[in-house]
Each structure stands twice: as structure tokens, then as C-alpha cells.
Design a protein around this nucleic acid. Structure first.
Length: 426
RNA sequence: CGGGGUGUAGCGCAGCCUGGUAGCGCGUCUGGUUUGGGACCAGAAUGUCGGGGGUUCAAAUCCUCUCACCCCGACCA
């Protein structure tokens, strides 16, 4: 993509409304713009990242034996009356009426919809287990939206729902999701700590929150350093339950099994939540199957969320410096930024154009800054939007047949031939 | 929802106390000089001063109602 054709309205000055690094950087890099409190438009650069994150989540959900569906944003109140949550949910639920004065709502989650689907089609234990997920916009009318997409009202969430015949089998589903989550966050260069959680309003008795470590995290967590070396291949639910991790409200220094000198403390951002909640929805919504003994049994359920739009902000919180964002390669909007420093020099521009084509042919996602602006602005913009690699070509460098390759994370700059530069970023 | 604050050019702000019809920096446009880390000079365009009502000869400024946004708290992917 050529910068001259792209759209990323960067800001030199810090927008007044942004309090935390990720919010400031998302606005300054032109990733998104606020429409109204807690609701944002995603601009091309931000959308690119959002899609990359969603794709990683999708791949790991698929790997864990889940099936993608797409459920609606607007749901009928009637379904929620059946589960009892239409009454319980409170003002966080955005309630609306259609033209027939029928009560509708903008879904904050989808247990009711998926359980209803299950109940209508699946009748036998032989069809279990089933795990369905969907990546869809949700709406929770937060009392006070803040920190950009970190706590928006509208947000993109992956939610997965598991259906099993027994508690034991439900635990296997739960474990499969734990593993999927560990893989998912590792692919985004995040350290994620599954903290045992009280299951809150959704109900149930087995629940972990995935907190990712970032200095600017909203809550303090205490954890066993073993968590930093979690190996997905040996991770089991039992092992997880022997490791200590707690949020500050639940941390009890008196009864902490980890000795004080070993215990680690950090700030965490919650990006995922896994719950087992048994038959809370299957009974009221009629999700029963015929068991092997010929009796109807309500299915055992769990649900598993990942805040995808929040992850965009969380990754920035974990990966930035005073110049801007530092994207992990797996979620970067482009892998390489190509800087033409002498746009008016025909030879330099020719070299850049040709090298740009080579990068495209090599299937490398590249943002080619071919704009007629000052070099300082090009460097500043490129550092701000945080692409992992910068390839800098100037009149000076082409006379030596070289370019400069800069690693955004380390700041390391090396002069290489164009061929070597291409290899370097492949 | 309780408490606090802010709405003035695309962005960041001054002007308000003490009323006289709007200004600064950045950005944008034009010309010139510059050209490896957000340049310089000269010129230009851009405002229902959040909205309604009121006081006054006169309102960005005073009074009043209202809307939006931000911050602190309780709530949450």
C-alpha cells in the first residue's frame, strides 16, 4: 500500500480526551476515531489490526474443535425472559423497541441465542460435544466508558459456548479453551495469566480470567512466576488449579502458598474470561439431550470470551515506547514500512518503486511512504504507527547500492544491499 | 447515578472575572528557500464562540434552561 493512497490521519498533538497510552496512540496513529461516548469508528489502519487479531483468535478456536457461527447483534427480549436475565441484567443492557413495539435488545452476550439454537437441533448425547463460537459486536451500556476501546460500550468479542453431557466432559471443554487461550495470547507476544475468578453475574463455579501483563493495567495481580513459563503442551486444569494467582481483591497475603520472595506482582488487563456454568441456561431454555440410558438430561455448558477490540488496546499497552506503538509482527497492520526519503530524486524513487514491487511479489505486507513530505515527518509517522521493520532508501544510500533496515523494537539500524534487506524481512 | 470539569477554526488553547462584535500555536492552501528525525520566510482561507431563552444600546463574556464530552467513584470482555 502506498501512503499517498492510504488513510491514516496521524496527529502530532495529544488529543485531550485520551488518558492512557493505548488510547492516545490509537488516536494519534489514525487507527480510529470516536463517534460518541464509548463508540468508535475503525479507520483502515486500526481495522487491519482488529482483523489480524480476530484471525488469530479464529485459528485457535478452530484448532480447539470449535465451530464458527454468526449470531445477530439484535435479539428478542422473549429469549432473555426465558432465562430470567431480561429482568436481571439491568441498565447495562441496551433495550430497544421495533416498529411493532416489540421489546428487543442489542446483545451484550449470546448464551440465550446459542442455547436456543442447540435446543432446536441437537437431541442426542451422540451429537456431543459441541462448541460454537462467534465473533460479533456486543453492546454493554457501561456506566462510564473510558480509556478508548479498553472500555467501550460497543466492542468486538469472541464468545464460545460448549455443550457436554457430563461435568467431566465439560471440564475437558474448559481445558481445551484454556489451552487455546494460552496459544492465542502467546501468538500476540503477550504474557497472559489465568487468574481464578469469582464467576460474577453469569453464575457457575469454575472460572478463570486471563490477565495480560502491562505496566498500565487496571488491576493488580499476584502470581506464581511459573505462569511466565506456561507450556501449552503440559498445561492441565489440575495443574492450573495448583498454581497461585489472584487479583488484589482476592489476594490473601496470610494464606498465600507462594513464598513472598518468589511471588510476583504486576498490573493486569483482563482480555479473556472462561466460565463453566453447568445447566444454568440449558434447563430454562430446554437444551436437553437423550442420554445413553434413555433419559433426558440438560447439557452442561461453559462460555469463553475474548475481548478482541480490547486486545488491540491491550497489545499497545504492553508494546509501546515514547515514540509510538511497537507492533508484534503477528498483528502488525503492515510488516514493513518503506521510506522513500528523496521523492523528487528520480533515481531514488525508481529504486523505491522497484523495491516496493519486489516486496509485494514476496507477499510482504508493506506500507510505502511515497508522500511528498519532510523526512522528519516520515520517520515520526513510521515510529508512531509502529510497523516492525523500516526500510529506508535515500539518494545517498542508493549510490552505495544499499538501504537501511531498522528494527522498530530494538532500534537497531543496519545498512544492507536491497537483496539482503528483502531476505531480512521475509 | 453521585461528585468535579470542559465546550471558542481540523487539532491544542487564550479571551470570560471587569460586556464594545474573536485571537495564538500546530495543521491546511499559494509562492520561494530548504531536504536523514515533525524546517524557514512571505502571503491566504477557515468560526451558527455546543444549543434555546433572557438581561442590555451592545453578549464568547452576565443570568437561566438544555445538550454533549471528559475526569473521580460504584459496575464490567
Amino acid at each position: 500500500m502506498r501512503s499517498s493512497l492510504y488513510f491514516y490521519p496521524t496527529l502530532k498533538e495529544i488529543p485531550q480526551e485520551a488518558q492512557i497510552a493505548s488510547h492516545r496512540l490509537m488516536l494519534r496513529s489514525g487507527m480510529l476515531t470516536q463517534v460518541t461516548s464509548g463508540i468508535y469508528s475503525w479507520l483502515p489502519l486500526g481495522l487491519q489490526v482488529l482483523k489480524k487479531i480476530a484471525q488469530i483468535v479464529r485459528e485457535e478456536q478452530d484448532r480447539a474443535g470449535s465451530l464458527e457461527v454468526l449470531m445477530p447483534t439484535i435479539q428478542p427480549a422473549e429469549l432473555w425472559e426465558r432465562s430470567g436475565r431480561y429482568h436481571d441484567y439491568g441498565k447495562e443492557m441496551l433495550r430497544i423497541k421495533d416498529r411493532h413495539e416489540r421489546d428487543m435488545l442489542y446483545g451484550p452476550t449470546a448464551e440465550e441465542v446459542i442455547t436456543d439454537i442447540f435446543a432446536r437441533f441437537i437431541k442426542s448425547y451422540r451429537d456431543l460435544p459441541k462448541r460454537f463460537y462467534n465473533i460479533q459486536w456486543k453492546f454493554r451500556d457501561e456506566i462510564r466508558p473510558r480509556f478508548g476501546v479498553m472500555r467501550g460500550r460497543e466492542f468486538l468479542m469472541k464468545d464460545n459456548y460448549s455443550f457436554d453431557l457430563t461435568l467431566e466432559k465439560a471440564k475437558a471443554s474448559y481445558q481445551a479453551m484454556l489451552e487455546a487461550y494460552v496459544r492465542t495470547f502467546a501468538r500476540m507476544d503477550l504474557t497472559a495469566i489465568p487468574v481464578r475468578a469469582s464467576s460474577g453475574a453469569i453464575g457457575g463455579n469454575l472460572s478463570h480470567e486471563f490477565q495480560i501483563i502491562a505496566e498500565t493495567g487496571e488491576s493488580e495481580i499476584f502470581y506464581d512466576p511459573e505462569y511466565e513459563n506456561l507450556d501449552v503442551n503440559t498445561l492441565t486444569l489440575e495443574r492450573l488449579q495448583t498454581l497461585y494467582a489472584a487479583s488484589d481483591e482476592l489476594h490473601d497475603p496470610e494464606n498465600c502458598p507462594v513464598p513472598l520472595e518468589k511471588l510476583k506482582t504486576a498490573r493486569g488487563i483482563e482480555v479473556g474470561h472462561v466460565f463453566y456454568f453447568g445447566t444454568k441456561y440449558s434447563i430454562p431454555l430446554g437444551a436437553y439431550v437423550m442420554g445413553p440410558d434413555g433419559k433426558q438430561v440438560p447439557v452442561e455448558m461453559g462460555s469463553y470470551g475474548i475481548g478482541i477490540s480490547r486486545l488491540v488496546a491491550a497489545i499497545i499497552e504492553a508494546h509501546h515506547d515514547d515514540r509510538g506503538i511497537i507492533w508484534p509482527e503477528s498483528v502488525a497492520p503492515f510488516k514493513v514500512g518503506l521510506l522513500n526519503l528523496n521523492i523528487k530524486d528520480a533515481a531514488c524513487t525508481k529504486t523505491c518503486d522497484e523495491f516496493y514491487q519486489k516486496l509485494l511479489q514476496a507477499n510482504i505486507e508493506v506500507l510505502y511512504d511515497d508522500r511528498d513530505i519532510r523526512t522528519g515527518a516520515k520517520f515520526a509517522d513510521m515510529d508512531l504507527i509502529g510497523l516492525p521493520w523500516q526500510i529506508i532508501i535515500s539518494s545517498r544510500s542508493i549510490t552505495a547500492g544499499q538501504c537501511e533496515v531498522k528494527n522498530r523494537r530494538t532500534g537497531e539500524k543496519i545498512d544492507l544491499s536491497l537483496e539482503d534487506a528483502l531476505k531480512r524481512v521475509c
